[in-house]
Design a binder for these strands. Structure first.
Lengths: 243, 243
DNA sequence: CGACGCCACTGATCTGCCTCAGTGCATGAT
DNA sequence: ATCATGCACTGAGGCAGATCAGTGGCGTCG
């Protein structure tokens, strides 16, 4: 696999050993590219009959709004991630999706996907694997919000992002670019913006990491992993591990 | 569909209109029945190469344990629910499953499931639908833990259980039997046992609901729905709505 | 150019929920 | 009959994190 493949092919290729033919087929799903501006919902709750997308560039957030106006962000999507896969199956979206930055994404028709599956069953495995991983991430997110304190929660979140970005070549162990405002982080982690700010300052003062001006710099990876009990195997690193 | 079918067939039949032949095929998955005692893990994190199950009777909990010993329960499983479906795909379980009561469950081999799928595609749709619904429930759970206060969180949780149990004929609008201790509820909702106790007392005093001695009695359904902003359509009620 | 808005940041104050340390009541074991 | 165990329940006190009320920097738009 070379860097010339799309983030999507690159990500799946990291988990299931895929042939060049299969990788090229994955890239082939990236026709029908669309651009969405940041700040306006591209899918909103209750909407029916829309498509799934694969993110080509940019970040998005999926979230729910509660009656009192507060927002819970369920997950962020980065290049290579699916958008709205579940809502295709359920027919009606149960959450909103809003780009965080300008977003490029490719529309994926269920029929195209199924054709690829019957043609190349290993691709089906890989896609199912990715969907399961997404679900596992939501579960981990739930555990964090339910049982971890603010500091550990933020560290865990930033390490998870690092792992995910690394998969598509957008992060190194030293750091990564991150377009999320403190407010977005707060809404994802069930904290207030003010508190996120304070904790980030503490992490900076402790020499653990710096998150500023849209960039995360990791100063002490071992320290971070130790304090957050981040599972290295959970989303991590090295080459094809399945099949 | 008649009450003679298994909870599993009954649940799926409520969402996808299935023929008698299809319902009977679903019941046919219930060979290989096993009994698990409460209190001992049936699946634990990191375990590989185990099966999926369908719950026939009894309740189970899936949870994670954190390094500090605290527990986050991700979901409870009731009759008709899948157990460990995702961990079959991922090959290694990412969480533990422990029966809450004595549990009867049927082992389901991936091959049997796939055979049923190729034979009856509508069944595949129904099963995928159920899996998506489970994921949507985890998302809703995340939203609750992140953004709802203790009272609303508990009410929402108990209403969701009511809807799920109703689907398999184990609840009415008046109430249902619930074998969960206050401690289990607390670990699911990210609260302390003590606080769950207090909130349940308040709900009782407000004449909204009584949860005591393993039984939930609903006194004021409209009041509960209003205060928790429970989405009636989200998991609810009336007959086949898909296909 | 100044005005407006967004974002990062800070201090003061408030509060929801936790922790600790207990009591009372079951049920089952001896 | 008594003891042990588990769950429900209560009050006192503490703390993590929320809310409120600001300041200052920076980009953008009339």
């Amino acid at each position: 696999m070379t860097a010339s493949h799309s983030p999507f092919a690159r990500k799946l290729g990291a988990f299931v050993a895929l042939s060049d033919r299969e990788l090229i087929a994955l890239d082939g799903l990236h026709t029908r590219r669309k651009v969405f501006p940041s700040g306006r919902d591209m899918i909103h709750e209750g909407q029916t009959n829309h498509s799934a997308y694969i993110v080509a560039s940019g970040w998005a957030s999926s979230y729910k709004i509660l009656s009192d106006g507060s927002r819970q962000i369920v997950d962020f999507q980065i290049p290579g991630d699916f958008l709205g896969l579940r809502s295709v199956l359920c027919r009606t979206a149960d959450h909103n999706i809003e780009p965080v930055t300008t977003l490029e994404a490719s529309e994926v028709l269920a029929s195209d996907l199924l054709d690829t599956f019957t043609d190349m069953p290993r691709v089906a495995t890989a896609v199912l694997w990715a969907a399961s991983r997404d679900e596992a991430m939501v579960v981990e997110h739930l555990v964090g919000v339910g049982r971890r304190d603010a500091k550990v929660r933020i560290v865990h979140f930033l390490l998870e992002l690092k792992s995910r970005l690394k998969l598509v070549g957008m992060a190194t162990s030293a750091g990564y670019d991150c377009p999320l405002s403190q407010n977005l982080v707060a809404d994802a982690l069930g904290l207030s913006t003010v508190h996120v700010n304070r904790v980030l300052r503490e992490l900076r003062e402790d020499g653990l990491l710096t998150f500023r001006h849209g960039h995360v710099e990791i100063h002490d990876l071992d320290g971070l992993i130790a304090m957050s009990n981040f599972d290295r195997t959970y989303l991590d690193e090295e080459g094809p591990m399945l099949i």
